[in-house]
Nucleic acid binder design. Sequence first.
DNA 1: GTCTATAGGGCGATAGAC
DNA 2: GTCTATCGCCCTATAGAC
Lengths: 205, 205
Amino acid sequence: MSATDINSKDRRLPLMGRWLPDAHGRLARAALELYSERGFEQTTALEIAERAGVTERTFFRYFADKREVLFQGSQELQRIILATIAETPEDVRPVDVVIAAMNKVGGLVFDRAHSIRRAAIISANPALQERELLKFSTLSASVAGALRERGVAEPSATLAAETGVTVFKIGFERWITGTPSEDWAECIRDTVCQLREVTPSIIVG
Amino acid sequence: MSATDINSKDRRLPLMGRWLPDAHGRLARAALELYSERGFEQTTALEIAERAGVTERTFFRYFADKREVLFQGSQELQRIILATIAETPEDVRPVDVVIAAMNKVGGLVFDRAHSIRRAAIISANPALQERELLKFSTLSASVAGALRERGVAEPSATLAAETGVTVFKIGFERWITGTPSEDWAECIRDTVCQLREVTPSIIVG
DNA sequence: GTCTATAGGGCGATAGAC
DNA sequence: GTCTATCGCCCTATAGAC
C-alpha cells in the first residue's frame, strides 16, 4: 500500500521469470513518487521507467501518456458505479439512482492518504487537471448512457448524470479536505442537502 | 468575418511596418481552417504559421499551445459573464444570478455557424475536449468566486456555479444541434425546466 | 527496441516605432 | 536612447511509426 515499497523485491517470488513481476504496478508507484518529489513536468518518462527498472518504451506500452498513469483507478471507479446502477431497482428516480451509486463506491474504492497525495499532484498541474476533468466527463457520459438504457429520456438522463457527478466531485473534495473522521456517506449526504437548496427558479424575464 | 480573407492584404494599409498587421488574427483563422480541413492532429504548428505568414516560433508566442488557439473566445465569454453577475441585484438567489448571466451572454457572443464549425473540430479530438472542459471548469471556479464576493457561503457558491455552467453546456449543445430558429433564451429556459425535475431526494439508507 | 517528427521552451539578434 | 514584435536557431522530451 505505501508508496515506499516499490523497490522491495517482492517477498513471495512466484517462479519469477526473466523480469521482475508487476511492471505495471512498479511504474505506477514510481510515477506517483516522482511526481510528488519533483513535480509532474520536472519528471521525465525515462526517469519513471528507470526507477521501475524497465525501459522508457515499456512505460508507454502500459500508459498511453505521462498523465494516464495517475488515472488507472478511474476506470475501476467507473466500472463499479455502472455495476451499482445496474443493480438498483427500477422504480428509483434517475438522480437518486446516480447518487446512491456514488454513495456506495466510497468505502470500496478509496484510500484516503493515497487520495490526498494524488490530489496534491493534480492540483499543481493544469495538464493533469484537464485529464481528470475528461475522466469525470467520460464517467458522466457513461452514467447518462446507463440511465437511457433504463428508459430515462434526454435531456433528463444527462442532467441527472451531471448532477450526480457534481455531487461526487464536491463530496470527494470535502472528504479529502475535511476532518479524517467524517465518512464518505456523510460527505455525500450533506452535499445533496446543500444542492437541494440551489434549485433554479423558472426564469420570467 | 469569413475565414477566407486571411491572405487579403488588409485594405487600409496603416503605414504598414515591417510585418503584416494582426498576426494573431491571421494565426487564429489559419488554425481553424486547417483543423477543419485535415483535423487537429494532422495539422502542425509550422503549417499554421506558414499559412499565416509568420514563423512557427511566433505561433507559440501568441498561443501557449496548439489547442489554445481555439479557446481565445472563452476568456471573452468569461469576462462578460462575470460582468453581468456584478450588475445583478443583490436580492436575486445565487443560482438565478448565474442562470440569468448565462441567459444574457447568448445573443452577444456567438456566431452560430462559427460555433458549429468549432464544435465539430473539438468533438473529433479528445485533447481538445480536455481543454474545453478545463475552460468550463475555470469558468465555474470564477463564477463561484464572484458569488462568494456577494456573500454566498460554500459549498452553495460552488454548487450554484456548477449548476449554472451545466445549464450553459447543455443549452449550448441544444442551441447548436437543434433547429436554427430556436433561440438561445429558449434553450436555456427549457434546460432549466428539465433540471428542476431532477432534484435529488434526501437519502435515507 | 530503434528511429524520428513534433511540441514547445530559451535566448540573443534585428528592425522598426516612439 | 527604449520598447515591442518577430526571427532564427538551439535544445529536450514526448509519443508515434517502423
